[in-house]
Amino acid sequence: MAKFRKKKGSGQQAINTASLPDIVFMLLFFFMVTTTMKEVALKVQLKQPEATELSKLEKKSLVTYIYVGVPQKQYQGTFGSEPRLQLNDQFSTVDDIRNYIVQERESMRESDRSKMTVSIKADFDTPMGIITEVKQALRKAQALKISYSARQVNQVPM
């Protein structure tokens, strides 16, 4: 009892703020880790084509991505060196596009579904055959708004 009484008399004690930076760091690391986690790991080689007349895709939540390209070196053993599709995190075929689009559309708010845009991110060297197949599949899936993703340059290669 005597000990407690002794403390009472010593006035207001300052709170130790030395741990405040740690809290800030913790927040910093939390955000750093969570923001990188959502990105899709590319499994195809992607060197975007170049163009000049580009428009920006405004709302990211409305955009669905389809990646097209030759599988990266470490996947070439299993998936070959022909251009392949990548939907989300896995290699897919053109037949999977329909389900993928339906799935993505389901996950959107109902009012946004008509504004859905599909961004085709294809390697510049991809033959058009596979891209035409993708486009036909998108037409069948009623995903008609598309965007050919490209890099902004001042002059297209002639």
């Binding site: 163009a51 428009s55 920006k56 961004s119 995903a143 598309i146 050919y148 490209a150």
Partner: peptide, 9 residues
Amino acid sequence: TDSGLSRML
């Protein structure tokens, strides 16, 4: 930010 050529199918 993704940019590209927008088209309607």
